[in-house]
Amino acid sequence: MLSTIHPMLHDGDVALVGHGHALRILTGVYLRRDPRFGRHLDFQTGALAILGHHHEDPVIEAWNRRR
Rank of each mutant, 00 (worst) to 15 (best):
M1H: 10
S3C: 13
S3A: 15
S3Q: 10
H6N: 09
P7F: 10
M8C: 07
L9C: 07
H10A: 14
H10E: 05
G12S: 05
G12M: 04
G12W: 04
L16W: 07
L16F: 10
V17I: 15
G18A: 01
H19W: 14
G20F: 15
G20T: 06
H21G: 08
L23E: 06
L26D: 05
G28K: 03
V29I: 13
V29S: 06
V29W: 02
Y30W: 15
L31S: 04
R33D: 00
P35G: 07
P35Q: 02
R36H: 12
F37L: 14
G38S: 02
G38R: 01
R39T: 03
H40W: 14
L41E: 03
Q44N: 14
Q44K: 02
T45N: 09
G46L: 10
G46K: 02
A47T: 08
L48S: 07
A49N: 00
I50N: 02
H54N: 08
H54P: 03
H55E: 02
D57L: 08
D57H: 06
V59W: 11
V59C: 01
I60S: 01
I60W: 14
E61M: 12
E61D: 06
E61N: 08
A62L: 15
A62E: 14
A62P: 00
A62T: 08
N64F: 15
R65K: 15
R65D: 15
R67H: 12
R67F: 11
R67D: 10
R67Q: 13
